[in-house]
Design a protein around this nucleic acid. Structure first.
Lengths: 108, 108
DNA sequence: GTGCCCTATCGAAAAATGTCAATATGAACT
DNA sequence: AGTTCATATTGACATTTTTCGATAGGGCAC
């Protein structure tokens, strides 16, 4: 249960189109917050909020350099997210439903 | 842009812990709505709403049999979701940032 | 130090979401 | 036809989320 709640936070973060687009932008390499801001019609405070969510869920990491903040994707966060998605869709070892539904789960 | 909005719908659906858990349950095989309902402390109308969202984003498919509705994961939906996640995190061919950031994206 | 730039935080308003009870739909059985 | 059961839809409410303007903090240049 805690496993699911923790894992779904990344999906919640990616559930907002703007944040998904930010992740896409970062997939090409590190970017300064101000560069990301240029691409969107949102206020600076809103962007800061989005970046905070992306960092808190582990998908993005921030790095301060002087007065700038550079953001980049976390390879570990990406790997964990892929693993989580596989876990909840493949019905194998880690599936939570094993305990909820022992009579019909994970017996293949 | 439309590509991102469409793709992030699946993540928005999975962003709710209960829906993520439902997906996990379905990963072990098809389940009747009433069986899923037994495992949660939610009303029937709430479950119906969750299942609707999971179906609309393409991750789950419903099948009517008499008065029952059976739900199962969509292999195609799962594959598409994996692909979308890879697209926005790998920075390769399909990355949206190419058009937004042509000077520094997708040149590796 | 003072001023300027970049980013984060706060407070508030609007919009979206999760939830329920009540009701509607639709299928099977008598 | 009427009843019962499983599911979907509706309407309402509380909570969460998105967003902004205003403000605060921290670094750099003068």
């Amino acid at each position: 249960m805690k496993f699911i709640i923790e894992g779904s936070r990344v999906f919640k973060a990616l559930g907002d189109p703007k944040r998904a687009m930010i992740v896409d932008m970062l997939s090409c390499g590190e970017l300064c917050a101000c560069m990301i801001l240029e691409k969107f019609q949102i206020s600076q405070s809103t962007l800061s909020h989005h970046m905070k969510l992306l960092c808190e869920c582990g998908l993005v990491v921030g790095r301060n350099e002087g007065k700038w903040t550079y953001y980049s994707l976390s390879a570990d966060g990406i790997a964990k997210t892929k693993q989580f998605f596989c876990d909840i869709t493949s019905g194998k070892e880690n599936c939570i439903c094993k305990e909820m539904n022992p009579d019909r789960c994970c017996n293949d």
